[in-house]
Design a protein around this nucleic acid. Structure first.
Length: 813
RNA sequence: GCCGGUGUGAUGGAAUGGUAGACGUGACGGACUCAAAAUCCGUUGGUGGCGACACCGGGCGACACCGUGUGGGUUCGAGUCCCACCACCGGCACCA
């Protein structure tokens, strides 16, 4: 019988559909629930990429396995369809983006179906569907009503090519993440979301979830919590200049201060500065620099001394100069620092350039002064304070505490926590996104649209292009823009910016629970039943963007009582990239892109699935190998051919029994731990055993049951061919049971070491005791050779998890 | 610079501190075949001498030593743990 994968795969995809086999039942109390999720794709015109197939297949295997374990599984899919590529395609080809989106979704859907994924197709969400974005807008209004959405004029990242504002997260190495063009700073009025308000919650929440460590540390670093103090410096002009420092212990070593070029005091002190022209010139120059120039290119420290104003060090009363320099950021802390060149690398460099005094206040552990001629001394672990008045002699940690106490007592400062995290720039001057449901009234200011008017539909426009002055295409639609104020009834204008692509993906996991609900983002019943996403797998590149944003929204929704859990995802894992055949990134220009459709045509979806799971460690990058794909097809052929040569017995054959029980255990554990490659290796080895030993129908039944999450179509067909159709489809079967006692054969192989070196390997009865196995080992002639003329002084007997002896180590002297 | 990760045959990769290299690829040998493909069976980390078969070619067997980026250490025993270093990859990057 030939393995006609094309016909088989079509047949079973149809049967699963007819049987509604992967339907998730909201409210089913008879089974435990399992909610597994993959990142929904952006439906680009290029179609599905092999990069999608890896995480999707992995979660599909997990979902299928969980069903076999008796869970009520929710494994949904959807489309994150707003966004630039579609819009750019629409502009170029004069097609409405909605039509492009619909077409792309169709292509993606057929490709996903071809791969045999067990999604619940009744729960598909599409972020561009008004029934969906109604609730995206609704959540925005809740954020607005709770003061977490605000509009402000600020310098933003402006992509010169996309003519669009970018979030900090979308700027990579000074260029636009999407198109690679230069990003400059531009003053614009923008909607912002106060994610900073949730900085601490987003750190604390990580303690209650099971994310891989890489994700946790990256999120923590991104949020960038630091603890320190704010310190007030009096100035000779009677102002108070407040700085933030993490090293208040070094206050006695502060020999000058620096404020950011954007600091308000530059203007405030305008009349008092004798060199204001020079200062103003520096401020202008700093403002015109892009972030890229300000960081990457400006290695050498620059700045201007503010002549005419000086500050007073609050702990020793010394007058110190004040500078402006672009190495101090306006957006962090107070935009001003106290500079301690002896113990901060950047301050040290600046002091070198300007010839400023360097006073050592931290010495090495033994109290000896350190050489400061070349670099700052920044060791905080062992340092001891010197030249520091009342904190002299304390360790750095003790000094920090003592100093904060002193500052607070004397009212010149206090402990303070700061975060690197910035608020989220939420406006885009583009067409293909959710309209922001706000109107601006001259009398009432920014007013929320009544919730009854949601969804605020995206109107049709003549042109999808951003206007020349960088405004949204919607701004040209005067009919739409001009409206009345919901508050006072007077004339008002609609907001013309749209939301960023991250909006729709920040809550889609909630919509899957109840995707068609017109009255709420999801019913309380559905939210309570499905709770958290139990397992969410996705790319590392989303760690500081999508993953953080969606945690923020969900935390907020929890705070206002909409969802039952603060944290949306219980477990987060991440997959490695699929590289091209030569180990390089797949790209059109390199011509090494693998199209899943081609693999399916040549070998079938089951081979594609098996290979993509077998390719290597799931968490690591892996290079495509067409040879290895053929190897996986060979494996499936070998499995297929077993059905014609196996015996008719339903029981396991004695020759394979132990291996089968071991495999059941191993594959079970491996799937749970995402070690798909070794799970498949185990099944390959088992298949090899079947060929070597012969096998029964029962043996094959066990094999295909275990293989079915990975290669479902083939296994369904074999299941039917072997005559098990009456028991239902294989995807509805229970995972086979294993018996620990049967995983061991009657005799075991025991490795015999002498002083830790392997010298022999002997067969021993499985039930032998320690003394018996040592005696047996001593009889072996290879061991006798090693022990000649010596006495046995020590023996170590090692047993495996199954309590059977694995290894004996003998020490002779 | 800071944070995280990785380093194992020709190759993708396996190994709760316990027989390093599972499984796949490639290569080599054999069976089947007129032949090839496919399939099936076997071999495959390096080095060394030894034994016997055979003897112009060759394969066979048992054994020893070395071997998981480098150098140390802990341990009866280290790819795995600790210390120092090297290389590569990812993230952040003047965040005071």
């Amino acid at each position: 019988m030939k393995y006609d994968f094309t016909a088989i795969e079509k047949k079973w995809q149809q049967k699963w559909k007819e049987a509604n086999a992967f339907h998730a039942v909201t409210g089913d109390a008879t089974r435990p629930k399992f909610y597994g999720m993959v990142e929904f794709p952006y439906p680009s015109g290029n179609g599905l990429h092999v990069g999608h197939a890896r995480p999707y297949t992995a979660m599909d295997v997990v979902a299928r396995k969980k069903r076999m374990d008796g869970y009520n599984v929710l494994f949904p899919i959807g489309f994150d369809a707003f966004g630039l590529p579609t819009e750019n395609f629409a502009i170029k080809n004069h097609i409405h983006p909605a039509i492009v989106t619909e077409r792309n979704i169709k292509t993606f859907t057929s490709q996903l179906e071809m791969l045999g994924y067990s999604f619940d197709w009744d729960r598909v969400v599409d972020t561009t569907d008004p029934g969906y974005y109604k609730w995206t807008q609704w959540i925005f209004l809740q954020l607005f009503k709770h003061g977490l959405a605000y509009k402000t004029s600020m310098p933003v990242n402006w992509c010169t090519s996309c003519k669009c504002v970018l979030a900090n997260e979308e700027v990579v190495n000074g260029v636009c993440e999407r198109c690679g063009s230069e990003v400059v700073r531009k003053e614009k009025s923008q909607w912002m979301l106060k994610i900073t308000e949730y900085a601490q919650k987003l750190i604390d929440g990580l303690d209650s979830v099971d994310y891989i460590d890489r994700v946790k540390t990256q999120q923590k670093n991104w949020i960038g919590r630091s603890t320190g103090a704010e310190v007030n410096f009096q100035t000779t002009e009677g102002d108070v200049l407040t700085v933030y420092t993490t090293r208040c212990d070094t206050l006695f070593g502060a020999t000058y201060m620096v404020i950011a070029p954007e600091h308000a005091y530059v203007e405030k002190w305008k009349d008092k500065l004798t060199n204001y022209d020079e200062v103003a010139a520096y401020v202008r120059k700093a403002a015109s620099k892009s972030d890229f120039e300000r960081t990457e290119l400006a290695k050498e420290k620059t700045g201007v001394r503010l002549e005419g104003v000086r500050a007073v060090n609050p702990v020793n009363g010394k007058e110190i100069p004040i500078f402006i320099s672009d190495y101090v950021l306006a957006t962090y802390g107070t935009g001003a620092i106290m500079a301690v060149p002896a113990h901060d690398t950047r301050d040290f460099e600046f002091a070198q350039v300007f010839g400023l005094p360097i006073i050592q206040v931290v010495a090495s552990a033994d109290g000896a002064l350190v050489d400061l001629s070349k670099e700052a001394f920044t060791d905080v672990a062992t340092g001891v304070m010197v030249n520091s008045g009342f904190i002299t002699g304390l360790s750095v940690e003790e000094a920090k505490a003592a100093m904060i106490e002193y500052l607070e007592k004397n009212n010149i400062g206090h402990a303070k926590v700061n975060y690197k995290l910035r608020d989220w720039v939420f406006s885009r001057q583009r067409y293909w996104g959710e309209p922001i449901p706000i109107v601006k009234c001259d009398k009432c200011g920014y007013v929320a649209l009544p919730e009854s008017e949601l969804p605020l539909l995206l109107p049709d426009v003549e042109s999808y292009e951003t206007t020349d002055d960088g405004e949204s295409p919607l701004s040209a639609m005067t009919d739409w823009v001009n409206t009345t104020c919901p508050c006072c009834g007077g004339p008002a204008k609609r907001e013309t910016d749209t939301m960023p692509q991250w909006a729709g993906s920040s809550w889609y996991f909630l919509r899957y629970m109840d995707p068609k609900n017109p009255d709420a983002l999801a019913s309380k019943e559905a939210l309570d039943y499905w709770g958290q996403v139990d397992w969410y797998n996705g790319g590392m590149e989303h760690t500081t963007l999508h993953l953080l944003y969606s945690r923020f929204w969900n935390n907020f929704l929890h705070d206002i009582g909409v969802v039952p859990y603060a944290e949306p995802y219980y477990k987060r894992t991440s997959h490695g990239m699929i590289l091209g055949e030569g180990g390089e990134k797949m790209s059109k220009s390199r011509g090494n892109v693998v199209n899943p459709n081609d693999i399916i045509d040549e070998y079938g979806a089951d081979t594609m699935r098996t290979y993509i799971m077998f390719i290597g460690d799931f968490a690591k990058a892996a290079a495509w190998s067409s040879k290895a794909v053929a190897g996986c097809k060979r494996f499936l052929d070998r499995v297929w051919n077993l059905q014609e040569q196996c015996g008719q017995d339903d029981a396991y054959s004695p020759a394979n029994e132990a291996a089968i029980h071991k495999a059941i255990k191993k594959v079970n554990e491996d799937i749970e731990a995402m070690k798909f490659n070794t799970a498949i290796a185990t099944l390959m080895a088992l298949t090899n055993d079947f060929y070597a030993n012969g096998c029964t129908k029962g043996d094959v039944k066990a094999l295909i049951t275990m293989l079915s999450p990975v290669a479902p179509h083939l296994c369904e067909e074999m299941w039917e061919n072997l005559g098990y159709a009456a028991e239902g489809m294989i995807c509805q079967q229970k995972w086979p049971e294993y018996d620990e006692s049967k995983t061991v054969a009657a005799t075991v192989e025991v490795a015999i070491q002498v002083s830790g070196k392997l010298r022999a390997s002997i067969q021993a009865p499985a039930e032998i005791d320690d003394a018996g196995v040592v005696a047996l080992a001593m009889e072996d002639n290879r061991i006798q050779k090693q022990s000649e003329g010596k006495n046995l002084v020590k023996q170590i007997v090692v047993r495996g998890k199954d309590k059977k002896i694995k290894l004996v180590n003998l020490i002779f002297q």
